[in-house]
Amino acid sequence: MSRVTPPLDNVIYLIALGVAMSLKKFTAAGAALALSLGLAACGSDDPAAEGDAAPTPISVYYTSPLAGYSIIQVADDQDLFPDDIDVSVEGGDSTVGVTLASSGRVQMYLNTAPMTENIAHGGAALAWAATWTEGMNTLFIGRNGVESLEDMKGRSLGIVQPGLTLSVIANDALIDAGLSQDDYKSVSLGTVPALAGAFAAGTVDGVVLDRITAQRLLSEVDGSVELFDYYDGTPFVGSGVSVNTDWLEENPEAATSFLEGLQAALDFMSENPEEAKKSISAMTGITDAAALDAAYQDFMDHSTDTLMPVSEEQMNASMRMLRNEGNDWATDEFGASVVIDPSYVEQALER
């Protein structure tokens, strides 16, 4: 009689099963032992076990729920990021964003100048990776007889809190108009909605707000006027993404893939306006159809067709703005040090 020798993997499985059965009773632990040894012998369908790398996780935080950052919502909603990365998105609170970016607990941080610059000066490994704007999409508006930036002398300026973007760029415009910070009173209000509410109520004379909110107030508040348009007036980074540079050194391909996904989102928004509006609504909370149309059009009017590296002109403008606040460390050389190599954007656009 011929003797059939079972394959080695079957032998190992049977041995494992025998070990399990030798227990007082065939417990769940015994079954697990048999199964695990059997799978180890027979192989696994898990791609990671066959040598395929798992997607690189990327945590993202956006600083404010504004349409200018909706690019990340679109990329997430439409699954536009390449398969080699696993992106998780949170955001909406600028204070939380600063904390997470400063501590290195997020790899990508969507924000506006000079937040990245300030955080990097504080010692964080953070630098600008890309932008999709050529300026700050904000307006300086006034009321109560204020008809020019010079008229803010002796008046009250509403801000969220000192050091945040809206207050810094407000001071920058007023200093350029010939005023000093002693010439007007800054009133901290804590949040953007509170800032808008104070302007509507007439308790402050001037504010800087995102274009959508500012235009709404201009249409609702009698005697209110636009004093300065930052998008046309100053080449700041209005919306962009910065990257943790320690992480970047270890994950250059993942960083490029992330930028590739953002470019795909820009393309998608241009070609699919109705779907893009759904993502804008999800991020901003805007539900009114006319307001959504305006928010979408505002994004398209003030965004570039392709991602761009942050330019020397943009960084020099940011450094000048910070020096106007009394920050002697804000040299053009420092500005150049907080921008990553433009080849990351170039490679993302080539894919």
Rank of each mutant, 00 (worst) to 15 (best):
Y109L: 07
M283R: 06
G197D: 11
I169F: 08
D79Q: 10
V74D: 00
D298K: 03
N10F: 08
G123A: 14
D176F: 04
D93Q: 06
D341T: 12
D46A: 10
P193T: 01
D79V: 08
L66T: 11
S279F: 05
N244D: 08
F258V: 14
S188M: 08
Y231K: 01
K153R: 13
R216A: 07
W247K: 01
L33W: 09
L218V: 00
E253G: 12
I72V: 15
D86V: 03
S337K: 02
G30S: 13
V339K: 14
N137M: 04
G197S: 07
N171E: 13
G158F: 09
V106W: 01
A282E: 05
G261E: 13
G104D: 01
D182R: 03
Q215K: 15
Y13R: 09
E325A: 13
P82I: 10
G158D: 02
A32P: 02
T165D: 02
E260Q: 15
T256K: 07
G123H: 12
T63D: 03
V19A: 11
M300Q: 13
T304N: 04
V243D: 07
L23G: 10
E260N: 10
D52S: 12
M136H: 03
W128H: 04
V19N: 06
D183T: 12
D301I: 00
V98Y: 12
A265Q: 01
T203A: 00
N144G: 13
A75M: 10
I286P: 00
A291D: 15
A336S: 15
T213K: 11
E350M: 11
M115D: 10
S148N: 09
A34R: 15
P162C: 10
G158M: 00
Y62F: 14
P235D: 01
M321W: 03
V243M: 00
